[in-house]
Simulated scan of single mutants.
Amino acid sequence: MTDTDPLLAVLAGVVVDLVRSLDECDDDVVDPDYAVKLLESASWTLTRLPRDQRDRLLRVLSDLAEAEPSPQRREFLASFPVAAGLAEQPST
Rank of each mutant, 00 (worst) to 15 (best):
M1P: 14
T2F: 10
T2I: 12
D3P: 02
D3N: 03
T4Y: 08
T4S: 07
D5N: 06
P6G: 00
P6C: 00
L8I: 00
L8V: 01
A9D: 09
V10L: 11
L11A: 10
G13M: 06
G13L: 07
V14S: 06
V14W: 14
V15H: 03
D17S: 14
L18Q: 09
L18C: 09
V19H: 03
V19C: 05
V19K: 05
R20L: 12
R20K: 13
S21N: 12
L22A: 01
L22I: 01
L22E: 03
D23W: 14
D23R: 11
C25T: 15
C25N: 11
C25F: 13
C25H: 13
D26H: 10
D27W: 12
D27A: 12
V29M: 05
D33G: 12
Y34C: 08
Y34R: 14
V36D: 12
K37M: 15
K37W: 13
K37N: 14
E40Y: 10
E40F: 12
S41C: 09
A42Q: 05
S43M: 04
S43N: 07
S43Y: 06
T45L: 11
T45H: 10
L46V: 04
L46E: 02
L46S: 00
T47M: 09
T47P: 05
L49W: 05
P50V: 11
P50T: 08
Q53Y: 10
R54V: 04
R54F: 04
R54Y: 09
D55G: 05
R56C: 01
R56E: 01
R56A: 00
R56P: 00
L57S: 01
L57I: 04
L57M: 04
L57F: 01
L57W: 00
V60L: 00
L61P: 01
S62K: 11
S62A: 13
D63H: 05
L64Q: 06
L64R: 06
L64F: 04
A65Y: 03
A65V: 05
E68L: 07
E68Y: 08
P69E: 06
S70D: 14
S70M: 15
S70Q: 08
P71A: 05
P71M: 07
P71D: 10
P71F: 07
E75T: 14
E75I: 11
E75W: 11
E75Y: 06
L77F: 05
A78Y: 01
S79E: 08
F80M: 03
P81A: 04
P81L: 03
V82L: 01
V82K: 02
G85W: 02
L86P: 01
A87R: 06
E88P: 02
E88V: 03
Q89V: 06
Q89S: 07
Q89P: 03
P90F: 02
P90M: 00
S91A: 10
S91Q: 15
